[in-house]
Every structure is written in C-alpha cells, then in structure tokens.
Amino acid sequence: MNANHLIVVGVDGSDGGRRALEWAVREAAGSGCAVQAVTAWSWVAIEYGPSPDEERNRATALLDREIAAVMTAVGGHHTIAAEVLEGRPADVLTAAAQAADLLVLGSHGHGRVRHTMLGSVSESCVRKAPCPVVVIPAPAGRSAPATPPVPRQTAAPA
C-alpha cells in the first residue's frame, strides 16, 4: 500500500475501537497510506431524549477524543481524516470502505451468548465489505492462575 491507498477504521469509543485505530495508524505510517476514522451514529425519537443534532455532536466529540488519544499514543505526527455518518455501524463502515484498500475493526471480545443475541458488527462487515477486513482482537487475559499447576506423578517402572 502507498499514499494513494486508504485504510478505513471503525471507531466507537470502545477499547477495541481504539486498538483498531492505533493499529491502522501504525500500519499506515509504515506503508504511506491515508487513514480515515469513521464513527456511526443513529437517533431514536423518544419524548425527552437528545435531538438528532445532539446525537451527531456526541458522535463527533467521541471521534475527536479517540483520534486525540491515539495521536498521543503513537506520537502525534500522523494525519487521520474523521467522518461521522448516520446509520447502522456495519452499513456505514462497509459504505465508507467502498474506496478503501482495508477496513480495520476492533473486537470487543464478547462471549458467544452476547454475540448470538446482539449480532456482530465485525462479522457483518467481513461478509459485506468490498475490501479485506482486519479485526484486531481483544488482548488475551494476562492474569496468572491462582494456584500453580500440580505436576502429575507417574509410577516408576518396577
């Protein structure tokens, strides 16, 4: 990939979204690609809820915070284009990736039950995206077992 190429990244304010953006910025720096961070938002009409403008502004503020945090983490000398689009996340991301060479998403590491009930944006994007999709996994647990394993005793030959 080079400067004429584009990496689109889904950013949703989660740790997974931030890991995806960090990975994409580092990948782009090594290959000269442009990075476009995309946040999806939607509005549900409820009597005392936020207006569509307030929801869009929240999404914009979230994306600005995430970009600033990643710029600090990776050195701050990269350019990240920001785009806030209305719609379902998988639809927004796959549409944004139409001109991209790569779509990068973060895994939330949800269990099978939650995945079955809620669905998966990354799974939908993998099926619908017009380009390769990279899913940055959640970090593996780093905690050590509470008790050390007990070595198995075997009988010595008689």
Score class of each variant (00 low, 15 high):
residue 3 A to N: 11
residue 3 A to F: 08
residue 5 H to R: 15
residue 5 H to K: 13
residue 6 L to G: 06
residue 7 I to S: 03
residue 7 I to L: 13
residue 7 I to R: 04
residue 8 V to N: 00
residue 10 G to Q: 03
residue 10 G to F: 01
residue 11 V to I: 02
residue 12 D to G: 01
residue 13 G to A: 00
residue 16 G to K: 06
residue 17 G to D: 05
residue 17 G to P: 09
residue 19 R to K: 12
residue 19 R to F: 07
residue 21 L to W: 03
residue 22 E to Y: 00
residue 23 W to C: 05
residue 24 A to G: 03
residue 25 V to L: 04
residue 26 R to K: 14
residue 27 E to T: 14
residue 30 G to T: 06
residue 30 G to V: 05
residue 31 S to F: 13
residue 32 G to D: 04
residue 32 G to Y: 04
residue 38 V to D: 04
residue 40 A to H: 03
residue 41 W to C: 04
residue 41 W to Q: 01
residue 43 W to F: 13
residue 45 A to Q: 12
residue 45 A to F: 09
residue 46 I to L: 14
residue 47 E to K: 09
residue 51 S to L: 10
residue 52 P to F: 11
residue 52 P to L: 10
residue 53 D to C: 00
residue 53 D to A: 13
residue 54 E to V: 12
residue 55 E to G: 01
residue 57 N to C: 06
residue 57 N to K: 09
residue 58 R to A: 14
residue 62 L to Q: 12
residue 62 L to N: 06
residue 62 L to C: 00
residue 63 L to K: 05
residue 64 D to V: 09
residue 66 E to K: 02
residue 67 I to T: 07
residue 68 A to L: 06
residue 73 A to R: 08
residue 73 A to Y: 06
residue 75 G to A: 12
residue 80 I to C: 08
residue 83 E to W: 11
residue 83 E to A: 14
residue 84 V to A: 05
residue 84 V to E: 02
residue 85 L to V: 15
residue 85 L to I: 14
residue 86 E to H: 12
residue 86 E to M: 12
residue 87 G to L: 02
residue 87 G to Q: 04
residue 89 P to W: 01
residue 89 P to E: 03
residue 91 D to Y: 01
residue 92 V to E: 01
residue 93 L to D: 02
residue 94 T to V: 14
residue 96 A to E: 07
residue 102 L to P: 06
residue 102 L to N: 02
residue 102 L to M: 15
residue 104 V to M: 03
residue 104 V to I: 09
residue 104 V to K: 03
residue 107 S to Q: 09
residue 108 H to P: 02
residue 108 H to A: 10
residue 108 H to L: 12
residue 108 H to K: 09
residue 109 G to K: 03
residue 109 G to Q: 00
residue 109 G to W: 00
residue 110 H to V: 11
residue 111 G to Y: 04
residue 112 R to Q: 13
residue 115 H to R: 15
residue 115 H to T: 08
residue 116 T to C: 04
residue 118 L to N: 03
residue 119 G to C: 08
residue 121 V to P: 00
residue 122 S to D: 08
residue 125 C to V: 06
residue 126 V to A: 13
residue 129 A to F: 07
residue 131 C to Y: 08
residue 133 V to A: 03
residue 133 V to S: 02
residue 134 V to W: 00
residue 135 V to K: 01
residue 136 I to G: 00
residue 137 P to H: 08
residue 138 A to K: 14
residue 138 A to C: 09
residue 139 P to H: 10
residue 143 S to A: 13
residue 143 S to F: 11
residue 146 A to S: 15
residue 146 A to M: 10
residue 148 P to E: 15
residue 150 V to L: 14
residue 150 V to M: 13
residue 151 P to Y: 10
residue 152 R to I: 14
residue 152 R to P: 06
residue 153 Q to C: 08
residue 155 A to S: 15
residue 155 A to Y: 04
residue 157 P to E: 13
